[in-house]
């Protein structure tokens, strides 16, 4: 069992998955966001090869543009 915190909420995953699968699972359709793992942003090109680890904190951030 893998425990992660996704956008501030704790989740349990039954198996190791990639960041790509995770973002599709939690935020389907158009991926209009940036993803940070343990407070560091991960380039989109690395989602496929990045595995989610036990204890990871993952956040999706959409561009904020209001000024």
């Amino acid at each position: 069992m893998i425990r992660i915190v996704f956008n501030g909420v704790e989740h349990q995953l039954s198996e190791t998955i990639t960041l790509s699968t995770l973002t599709e699972k939690f935020a389907p359709k158009e991926q209009k966001f940036a993803v940070a793992v343990n407070e560091q942003f991960v380039p989109k090109s690395l989602y496929e090869e990045t595995s989610v680890q036990d204890g990871d904190t993952i956040e999706l951030l959409t561009p904020m543009v209001g000024g």
């Binding site: 959409t62 543009v65 209001g66």
Partner: peptide, 24 residues
């Protein structure tokens, strides 16, 4: 551009979503 790109445009702005004055 390393963080956000054109495809992420949600066009949320203060006129539509509101904003608390002191936050800005």
């Amino acid at each position: 551009r390393c963080l956000y790109d054109e495809s992420m445009d949600l066009s949320l702005n203060c006129a539509e979503s509101g904003v608390l004055g002191p936050v800005v």
